[in-house]
């Protein structure tokens, strides 16, 4: 099995001088689904933006990130953006087209695919995210959950091998959350889920990485890490209720 993501000693400093990532290293095998947790400002979103070369801007050599065993540099960044689908935190940032269909179609069109093939991919993405019948709707006529699904549809239409999701369940009502979980569970792609929703991590991810102040604090089995109350509290997190019921103290 291939290594989907490999990061070696990744550093990143914001233009204003604030250090965001401080020597981050880890790797993910293909098909793995991992949770990325940590307090606000720990560097989760920044880390995700490195997976397809949005950051650093401009890309610098030597590359610290490899995707599907290919180093991410200026020549590979185009292809890697197809391999890595990024779901942004605010659906309004990602839904930039006037209709749902155009938005889902944006990626495949940019990647220069043939029309028949494109249409099939878009159709599949709409089916996977349960959006058939929404094609002509405008984003401003959608609910929060629907918007999130359109964003996911737009990402899936590019048929990425790796999905990087930034807070996929934020601002969703319980029904929206349930639906999104179902979709994520049904997908074959490797997934990295950055979130504060620890129940989501417990339900979907077998492995978890804890990030705080730009460093990896822990990397291991989800139940074990999230069940470690001392570790959780120290890094602004807490053991989710489902785990408390499983391991009563």
């Amino acid at each position: 099995m291939k290594t989907a993501v490999d990061i070696r000693n990744l550093h990143y400093t914001y233009p204003d001088g604030k250090i965001a990532l401080h020597g981050v290293s880890f790797s993910i095998r293909e098909g793995e689904r991992i949770g990325l947790i940590g307090p606000n400002g720990s560097g989760k979103s920044t880390l995700l933006l490195h997976l397809n070369g949005i950051l650093p801007d401009p890309l610098h050599a030597p590359p610290a990130v490899s995707i599907m065993e290919r180093p991410l540099d200026k020549t590979s960044v185009g292809a890697i953006r197809r391999d890595v689908g990024l779901l942004f935190q605010d659906p309004d940032d990602q839904l930039f087209c006037p209709t749902v269909y155009e938005d889902v179609a944006f990626g495949p069109k940019q990647f220069g695919m043939q029309t028949a093939e494109t249409r099939a991919m878009i159709q599949r993405a709409l089916e996977q995210t349960d959006l058939l019948g929404f094609e002509d709707r405008s984003p401003h006529h959608l609910s929060g959950g629907e918007k999130r699904r359109v964003c996911l549809g737009g990402v899936l239409a590019c048929e990425p091998k790796i999905l990087a999701l930034d807070e996929p369940t934020s601002n969703l009502d319980p029904r929206g959350k349930r639906k999104l979980k179902e979709i994520l569970r049904s997908l074959q792609a490797t997934q990295i889920i950055a979130t504060h929703d620890l129940e989501l991590v417990v339900e979907l991810c077998s492995r978890t990485i804890v990030l705080d102040q730009g460093r990896i604090i822990a990397d291991g089995d989800t139940i074990e890490l999230l069940g470690n109350e001392a570790l959780m509290l120290e890094h602004g997190l807490e053991t989710p209720h489902i785990l408390r019921h499983r391991h009563p103290h």
Binding site: R82, G85, Q110, C158
Partner: peptide, 9 residues
């Protein structure tokens, strides 16, 4: 960033 992530060029 979101547009670039989906291959905008």
């Amino acid at each position: 960033a979101a547009m670039s992530a989906r291959g905008w060029k």
